[in-house]
Amino acid sequence: MRRVAGGFLLAAAAFAQGSFDLSGTVRQTLADWQKNTGIGIETEAESRIRHDVGEAWPRLEELVRLQAPYEASPEPLTRMLVRTYCFDLRDALLRQARPFARARQARTLAFQAPASGLRLRDADVLHFSFLDFLSGFFPRLQPVGYLQVTSKPDRADITIDNQPKGFTNRVFVVSPGSHTVAIESPKIVRRCRRTVQVAPGRQISLHCP
């Protein structure tokens, strides 16, 4: 009897889903995003950013609701910004390294376009399930990042994380996270060395003039 009850409990835990309040994370991400892009976004003070239990996840394109008040709305640009915001949000969550919290994509983003910048009204960003929790233990299931290394003139030595990786120009598949890249050549005046943060599914380009 105990075993049966334990089995039921385990099955219930496996299919349990929860919701998390990510307001703080979103605010921080928006601050970072604004700092990096120079585009102002204001969050509404009272908005709580949640994802409720058991809701389905349609595609991002279907979910982005733009509320631009003028006809010639720069929708593609805004969409691009929203997409960037979503990626940044996901990266911020991944950086937190919380085993229970892994964002997939923004569910709903509604924007107004005031005179200065965009205004974020609401965002539901996180879905949690036990399967997500389990997949966190298997990093190979997570997407990789890409690093494009170029120089002028080319055929300069590339070193990534203190390991020689051939010559420029090349594209590398890299694990998400921090990598130190150095580009050296007698033909290049100064030695290029930079530490980059590669996010999952994104490409970073490095060029050494």
Partner: peptide
């Protein structure tokens, strides 16, 4: 989770 960087 071991880091890597390999040519595509």
């Amino acid at each position: 989770s071991l880091p890597f960087a390999e040519q595509m």
